[in-house]
């Protein structure tokens, strides 16, 4: 059983998500709450397998909850629920530790697909976000940023995959082109997301040490 927790302040959506989760035999509703504070209380009791969270909560920012959860429960897959799936929001939440995002108007079957894909180790990614990642995690430029170790950079294969995603190729097409399994592609994407999160944390550390906040 996959334990799913939902944080969403819009009761209509919350209700809809709850219905989808409870209707599915493999899913179990861990918690469904409408505020950041309530989310923290629920998370204090234990870890869900999947956390679905809206960024625009009334009390605490969604990215904050994501950051806390990612630190506390690294095993939990966090997904942002967004209306538009726009670059800015998605990147911010991926940096905080989210593993992907879900459009609010997704049909129930799409909704379930994405959660299952995520549990299987893959993450969804749009071409615009792929291009942005490609830019952010560009392979080593040691002279410019000597502090960021190479393990946080993209490998050649990862760059290639991001480049193709940015051109609109689907995971299936990608797998065929690169002669790997679609599952491997999704794993790659998840790894890249993790790198972005680590990368942004690394930048934060670098920035902090540069400003002598930490020694």
């Amino acid at each position: 059983m996959i334990k799913v927790m939902i944080v969403e302040d819009d009761p209509v959506f919350l209700n809809r998500f709850c219905k989808i989760v409870t209707a599915h035999p493999d899913f179990e509703l861990f918690a469904a709450v409408a505020s950041g504070v309530a989310a923290r209380e629920s998370l204090a009791r234990g870890a869900p397998d999947v956390l679905l969270i809206d960024l625009g909560l009334p009390d605490v920012s969604g990215t904050q909850i994501i950051r806390e959860t990612a630190m506390r429960y690294p095993e939990t897959d966090i997904m942002v629920v967004t209306v538009f799936g726009d670059e800015e929001h998605v990147l911010a939440s991926v940096e905080a530790g989210a593993a992907g995002y879900l459009l609010k108007d997704s049909l129930p079957e799409e909704f379930i697909d994405v959660i299952e894909q995520l549990r299987a180790g893959g993450s969804p990614i749009s071409p615009v976000i792929a291009r942005r990642l490609l830019k952010r995690l560009r392979p080593a430029q040691p002279l410019l940023e000597p502090d960021i170790s190479d393990c946080r950079r993209l490998s050649a294969r990862e760059s290639e995959i991001l480049g193709l995603i940015a051109k609109g190729f689907t995971f299936a097409e990608l797998a065929k082109l690169l002669e790997i399994s679609p599952h491997t592609v999704t794993t790659y994407v998840k790894k890249i997301y993790q790198k972005l999160a680590v990368h942004s944390r690394g930048e934060a550390v670098y920035e902090a040490s540069r400003r002598r906040l930490i020694s």
């Binding site: 726009d86 291009r131 940015a166």
Partner: peptide, 17 residues
């Protein structure tokens, strides 16, 4: 509204997505 950086292919990719 996102900065496109003259990358038409990504825009096409996104439309497909």
């Amino acid at each position: 509204l996102e900065p496109s950086e003259n990358d038409l292919l990504t825009l096409l990719g996104n439309l497909r997505y």
